[in-house]
Design a protein around this nucleic acid. Structure first.
Lengths: 133, 133
DNA sequence: ACTCAGGAGGCTATTATGGCTTTAGATTCG
DNA sequence: CGAATCTAAAGCCATAATAGCCTCCTGAGT
């Protein structure tokens, strides 16, 4: 899978968190957004691990943005949540690495690479700030 | 789901078909691209149904592009293959239609709408020709 | 010490992916 | 013209990945 529901939830959460002035806990976010609590918790943890969110334990704990909205790109968010970049193609990162079993794909690798590049650029330049403005 | 493997296979197929001068059957495409035959067949059928591909039955049958590459946008391809637009969000198309169960999401609907619009525009302007050039 | 909220793991349900078979339309050949 | 063959079309079934649920553990605040 390429772009999953987890990405959707991550972006929704980031929008809400960007408007909060104190950390919000995952249960509150879950209620606000009607997102399954335990699934959301994992997503928030992934974002915290990549330092897109800060996490706080304890009574008034929760999550808050670790970066300014203009420094949070959709590409980073998706990569963090999905554990890898939101690749459109599972082709190798370089033409040389193209696995032999898919040798015929290699011949069209330049086109895939071009498309992937366009998508990556778009997502990298699209920040949380662009959505909020 | 948002963007699936089916989209990947669809785009791969379109690239190959754009270089063919005669219809290619799904089995050949499947072999060329190392894509599961039956799954690919369904994808090609979906593209044919949306008139992105032309299909031909019989001995020298197969699929070929129904449109010029510059008239095939990634948005159309993804919509055709996934049965719906590659929405990042499952939010309602208009703020008024926002289902009550997700009432709290409605308050951030403008932001989602903005993001969705940006993504749609990007995908609508990205054509097969852009990849091939 | 107690409570609250994040971190981490396992388990189930749902959905996407892939396999297989049958039907229908088109072409070729006898 | 009719039979055989080829390939798309369409369905059902199996498997794999994702989405979602639950429990226990850890660290911070009171």
């Amino acid at each position: 899978m390429l772009i999953t529901r987890a990405s959707e939830y991550a972006i929704l959460s980031l929008i809400v968190l960007s408007k909060a002035d104190a950390p919000m806990d995952s249960e509150t976010l879950s209620r606000e957004l009607s997102i399954p609590k335990s699934f959301l918790a994992k997503i928030l943890q992934a974002l915290a691990k990549k330092e897109i969110l800060k996490s706080f334990k304890g009574v008034h704990g929760g999550f808050s943005l670790a970066l300014a909205p203009e420094d949070i790109s959709m590409l980073e968010v998706m990569s963090a949540v999905e554990g890898k970049a939101p690749a459109v193609f599972e082709c190798a990162p370089s033409r040389e690495d193209c696995p032999s079993e898919r040798a015929n794909i290699c011949s069209i690798w330049p086109f895939l690479n071009k498309l992937q590049g366009k998508i990556d650029l778009f997502l990298a330049e699209l920040t949380l700030a662009d959505i909020l403005e």
